[in-house]
Amino acid sequence: MANSSGLLVIERILRDRQGIWQQVVEDRGLTRLTGQMLVSTVIALACYGAVLGSFHSVLMALTSAVKLPLLFLVTLAICLPTLYLFNLVFGARLSVRQSLSLVMVALTVTAMLALAFAPISLFFLITAPDYGFFKLLNVAILALSALVGLRFLTGGMKVLNEHGLLAPRPALAGGPAPAPAVPPADPAAPAADPAAPVTVPANGNGATATLTQTVPAQAPPGQQFVLHPHPHMRPVPRPQAAATPPSMALLYVWILLFGFVGTQLAWTLRPFFGSPGMKFSLYRDIDGNFYAEIFRTIAHLF
């Protein structure tokens, strides 16, 4: 699966997402991987854009096949520097290749999922060719596909956080920490046998219990041990919760920014569907906004 190319890269992303994240963490072969995802994203969005424009005419289908990939790629070009600088400001150690590959995984999943919905969109185009319903249906398809893609993006960022790439490298001040002082052993005292049974009080009424389990002398770094009263239970390590870095919090702000830029750019590049009562036009005058148009369409349907 590591040599998958073209449209088959989506199969590797879905089947081996941990392998993809590990490749991003190691910054290994990302140029080729990003190129494969770019090709598959453009082809998938072009096919889906042709479905959108086919509601109006063949010429509209061709222009939508060009404009839909352009919409996603221009939005990425506008917003990617913001994500990269966010990471640099808060000490993340991601390269430009890693940031681009991370976002391209989300775009590839979004594009391929939208392409998977294309037969459903065509079905309603043939059986129920209503302009308002068709427009809302495809907006919902793109929104659902984008949500799934963003889940991959947040999942990848969490993996990078687990590998410490979203936090600054810890500084070693003054060299390695000195070893803790150990008091000298008393030569007259008998050596302690770690496997020997130890008698301890079990409760407050004078009863005792014998512990035969070996207890480690020193806990591993970053762990605390909880001693249980049962003599045959091992100490249970209590992991310490890792703090969420600012880069993870700012990722959600960047996702909102990406959504606002994308919807405004989509409004600028319209039409994608083509109103049935209007002649073909490459662009329309910029008036209103995307969200007002969606609300007007919903009000018209109901």
Rank of each mutant, 00 (worst) to 15 (best):
G288T: 09
Q98C: 03
G53N: 12
T63R: 14
I20R: 01
P220H: 01
L251E: 07
A118D: 01
I120Q: 06
M248A: 13
L282N: 10
A2P: 07
V139R: 11
Y131L: 03
G274I: 06
A140C: 09
F72A: 15
V226E: 11
T34M: 07
R28Q: 15
L257M: 15
T263M: 13
F55N: 00
R284Y: 05
P187F: 10
L211E: 11
E162D: 09
D130C: 07
H300E: 10
R169I: 09
L68W: 02
G274M: 06
L107K: 02
R17A: 15
F124V: 11
P229C: 08
A111L: 01
P197A: 12
E162G: 07
H56I: 02
P245C: 03
W254P: 07
A167E: 13
A114C: 02
P170N: 05
G156D: 04
G204C: 08
S4W: 12
L83R: 11
R93C: 05
A2M: 11
G29D: 15
Q213G: 12
R234K: 15
E11T: 14
I298P: 07
Q213A: 14
F134S: 07
P235R: 11
H232F: 03
F133Y: 14
L113F: 03
L83E: 09
S40D: 02
P245D: 04
Q264E: 11
D287C: 10
D16C: 09
F134D: 03
H228K: 14
V42P: 01
F273V: 04
T41F: 00
S5R: 14
D186H: 07
L122P: 00
L115C: 10
E293L: 12
F258R: 05
G164K: 03
R270Q: 15
P194E: 10
A243I: 05
A188H: 15
P194S: 14
V236N: 10
